[in-house]
Design a protein around this nucleic acid. Structure first.
Lengths: 336, 336
DNA sequence: TCAACAACTTGAAACGTATCATGTCGTTAT
DNA sequence: ATAACGACATGATACGTTTCAAGTTGTTGA
């Protein structure tokens, strides 16, 4: 137990009888003489040498770290995204610094700065404020599911517009005549706003009267949902709508609960499609409600891919991936 | 845009007309003359100076990083734990490196090593293999919800034994006469095994015949659950048990679903209490099933606290926090 | 045999910080 | 007036790498 200090590259060089430069080459996989290679390898083994990340970082100013800024990891969508980001980084021997901003702009900025200070090799941001203007140095950054004023920052997200259209058309295909839309109005404008555009477009295309609830992200959505339900009850108790496209699985689930608590059957009386693709307990394929599923894994991979791109001039400014309809019990499926 | 290189402590010293040592002192909050303090402060502002983490890390070999090794963040329990760890670290200006091991021992070890290589200030581990023997250097480590052979490694977890007792007694209190236990037999022995001991103890204490299913963690638990149900059906279709204590909310939820699909009503025919305290969509207080709720937040704080302890000799070897019963719809609550 | 050349090795010079022995200055006590 | 002392400033040094110009081999062809 005498070895208190970790061995350095010098110790290895001495033990192997070569120079530090040669050892450095072996470590970094640069060609050296077979003989030297072997001796160095042995010395490394014998001394249990491990490179000092800080000395290396000081020289090459790369850290092998990537920062991910998300609101939290309680929300299953963010948690899943974080998991896939981690997995994708692992493939490239990169480590993930997880930053939970709680949607607080000051915290988002703080994390951005400490990421820069930690000389991260990249930043993946899912923020609620526009931190785009604070990217001054050349740190690669990619924004997920949001967009900033500074349009030179690459964005990655799902094709919300098409997804919303698909949701409406799926409802129609499954026999709905009056699909409504439960919208969640985020504090920060983002890609997800396109879901409304998609709903409206689909309505127009199929000669439907658009009918949507605008919920505000301030904790009152539950009451708004209740009022919406009351407003759509006929005198005989039946509903004026028979299909729901929900802005997220979260809101969809709660509306479903409200419907069943009020005696309406889902999917018999009302069919419901959400958005996101939240899985129960994170179990693959076990969707909480029928949903337009975001390809979270592919989205995460895309983000990492863009961060890693050598030639920054070939970085696409916008990458949209398609969503897919997934059955989750709130729609009438033939054969189920 | 000529400033390509970040300013160093030397640049600041020159600009402020003092020595580098003085600047260093100002940065680290060591007393200097008021006048110098001001000048340095101004120079830092003017140059937008930020300390270089790597140069500092090289000197003091501290990183401000803490590694968390968990199987994944898809599972809401882990995701919640990770979130609280992150929050607790944030309070101490520490950053979190998130490592998802997928329960693969090799990956766990790999992450452990890269954590050491990154000179993390601490490691919080929720692993499936005993990595205890690989902690060679002095890196502070704490193990959550597991125990290793090397008993000198501090452990933090919930009081599973008492929690299980409480679950059984709650079921009895709510009118159950025959509570059974659905056990999930983990591949790796851990604190959670104490839940069975608690169940058995409670049975003994209340003169009940213990009756539990031993599920193996190999993907066959669903069938095992089905067989268990069949085995407990009386000729008239009623069940021989009227209460279930489930090893986790996950298994409890799926058993509940199986029960209702078979025409049994929960909680009218069978009451069910799980373990963990999984919240629907991560919404505080919205439990998926009635459950013995682990104090995840406090557990996370405890882990961070232990990591940060200066005097390693005062580190408690075992810290057990109490769980609390939380209503989640699968029990008969007076007044609900 | 020797020049030319490729292939590899070498060791010193950074990278940006914290630290510490030394130096400086102003204040107090005698 | 001088010694003694405290308070702070200074700048060289070390931390462990990578890199690069310069040096050392060994191999080839004539």
């Amino acid at each position: 137990m005498a070895k208190k200090y970790a061995p350095t590259i010098k110790d290895v060089a001495r033990a192997a009888g070569v120079s530090v430069g040669t050892v450095s080459k072996v470590i970094n996989g640069i060609a050296v003489r077979k003989e030297s290679q072997r001796k160095v390898q042995e010395a490394i083994e014998a001394l249990h040498y491990e490179v000092n990340t800080y000395a290396r970082g000081l020289k090459i100013s790369k850290s092998g770290l990537v920062a991910l800024i998300v609101p939290n990891t309680m929300n299953p969508f963010y948690a899943t995204f974080a998991d896939h980001i981690e997995a994708a980084l692992y493939e490239h021997s990169l480590k993930l610094i997880l930053c939970c901003s709680d949607e607080i702009p000051e915290k988002e900025l703080e994390y951005l700065n400490s990421a820069k200070q930690n000389k991260v090799d990249g930043i993946i941001a899912l923020t609620y404020s526009d931190i785009g203007s604070h990217i001054t140095d050349g740190t690669p950054i990619v924004v997920f599911d949001r967009f900033f004023e500074n349009r030179s920052i690459p964005r990655v997200g799902s094709d919300n517009f098409t997804g919303a259209c698909m949701a409406v058309e799926k409802l129609l295909e499954l026999g709905c005549r009056h699909p409504v839309y439960i919208r969640f109005h985020s504090k920060f404008p983002g890609e997800a706003d396109k879901r409304r555009d998609g709903y409206l477009y689909a309505c127009q295309r199929h000669d439907l009267e658009p009918d949507h609830l605008d919920m505000v992200d301030d904790g009152t959505w539950r009451e708004a949902l209740g009022e919406f339900l009351e407003r759509h009850k006929r005198p005989d108790g039946s509903l004026t709508f028979d299909g729901v496209f929900a802005h997220t699985d979260f809101h969809g689930y709660h509306f479903m609960k409200m419907l069943t608590e009020n005696g309406y059957r889902v999917p018999e009386d009302v069919q419901l499609i959400g958005f996101d693709g939240i899985e129960r307990f994170g179990t693959p394929g076990d969707y909480v409600i029928s949903t337009m599923c975001q390809p979270v894994r592919q989205l995460a991979q895309k983000c990492v891919e863009i961060i890693l791109l050598e030639d920054r001039s070939t970085v696409p400014s916008l990458t949209l991936l398609p969503v897919t309809y997934c059955y989750g019990g709130t729609t009438r499926e033939p054969g189920r």
